[in-house]
């Protein structure tokens, strides 16, 4: 029997493009020995019903992510910049096409 470490292959994150013109979207994760196997498993696991036209797989330990603890520091600074939105500016109703 294999020992604990070798029981599992590495974890991969799977992204599927549903159809041409759309972004790849994260759909879940899976275990595979390498990238080729990860692609095949992703095809079998996440696209059994024509859910996609293209798949990306990325090793989960290669993903860098922002931390929930840093949410304030990370995202708060854009909160008070209302002038970045078009609705910040008042334009008379009589002006067309703007």
């Amino acid at each position: 029997m294999s020992d604990e470490i070798r029981h599992e292959w590495p974890l991969f994150e799977v992204f599927v493009r549903a159809k041409r013109g759309l972004n790849h979207v994260h759909v879940g994760s899976l275990r595979a020995a390498d990238h080729t196997m990860a692609l095949h498993h992703a095809r079998d696991l996440y696209t059994r019903r024509n859910e996609g036209v293209s798949i990306w797989v990325v090793r989960s330990d290669d993903v860098a992510a922002s931390s929930p603890d840093e949410k304030e520091a990370f995202f708060a600074p854009s909160g008070d910049k209302a002038y970045r939105h078009p609705t910040y500016y008042s334009i008379p109703d009589s002006v067309p096409h703007i």
Partner: peptide
Amino acid sequence: AWVREAAAAHAAKQTGVPA
């Protein structure tokens, strides 16, 4: 078990890095 081990060994051989 042997399939999982063989696949991991193959992957390690391809990349030179143990899976």
